[in-house]
Design a protein around this nucleic acid. Structure first.
Lengths: 137, 137
DNA sequence: CATTTAAGTTGTAATGATTACAATTTTAAA
DNA sequence: TTTAAAATTGTAATCATTACAACTTAAATG
């Protein structure tokens, strides 16, 4: 029984070959890939795969909260199989996105209680990673 | 002396008519507008304005930290003249973006100290606002 | 199991925000 | 002034994402 299959089923998503493959990719690759990265990488071993299917599947996975969409990169949406409460850092030099654990994020109390019903919270940080800082950009 | 002019000069941006008008718009309209909203609204009283100038100016303003870009909306970038530490809430019903003050956001210590040099931090929340919740979406 | 229906996938074409670029205008400098 | 640099403009290109119609696969019914 694959992790990907369990993950899909527990989020009420019928596991097709394509969905399993995309879900598995995201579980394996914690690099916050774009839809196109996922497509390109899977395409080599699955040449019948369509880009549209990748987009459709990602949308479904996000709707069912099986993964999360990250909008820290203005250009493309990024996807993350880790839906636990953690922050993201994007390096303005190399563009890489890193996970950051945030102490006390649970305790960040948003002054919004009655005004809004919050489903989802994301903390984004931007700057330069160590490597890029040393290589002057 | 206009606020917009002071704001530009203090951020080392040469104040042209177009830049002043865009900066002023953002100081006046705290609605987190898109580039196109800014263009459309200014265009009526400034028919020589170009959409490209709006994009160029917004990019410059962000680079000089005179305003901030918000990527809570996957479709379009939003812009905010308020660069102080505050969070944003986007309603998945009506699409409106609200400011939220966050107690303790300063104290959110990111476990990233030596790994990253953080320039900028943003907290995004998504869900439904009171009005949309009542009107069942 | 045969057949009908629904769900999922595919490829192409459209959309829409943003950027590239070359021409023109405005501002600053010599 | 004349010349050079900076800013603006309009159009065309780019590129991620979505719409859509055709096709395929899976499920449901009898």
């Amino acid at each position: 029984m694959s992790l990907a299959q369990d993950h899909l089923i527990s989020h009420h998503i019928k596991p097709s070959v394509q969905r399993l493959s995309i879900m598995n990719y995201l579980l394996q690759n914690r690099t916050h890939p774009t839809a196109d990265m996922i497509f390109s990488d899977l395409y080599v071993s699955m040449p019948t795969l369509s880009r549209t299917t990748v987009y459709n599947t990602l949308k479904l996975l996000v709707e069912e909260k099986a993964i999360q969409m990250i909008t820290i990169d203005e250009k493309n949406a990024r996807y993350d199989a880790d839906t636990s409460l953690h922050a993201h850092f994007r390096c303005k030099g190399c563009g890489e996105i890193f996970d950051i654990s945030v102490l006390g994020m649970e305790t960040v109390r948003v002054q919004a209680d009655e005004r809004f019903e919050i489903d989802d919270m994301q903390l984004y940080c931007r700057g330069y990673c160590k490597k890029c800082k040393e290589n002057h950009l």
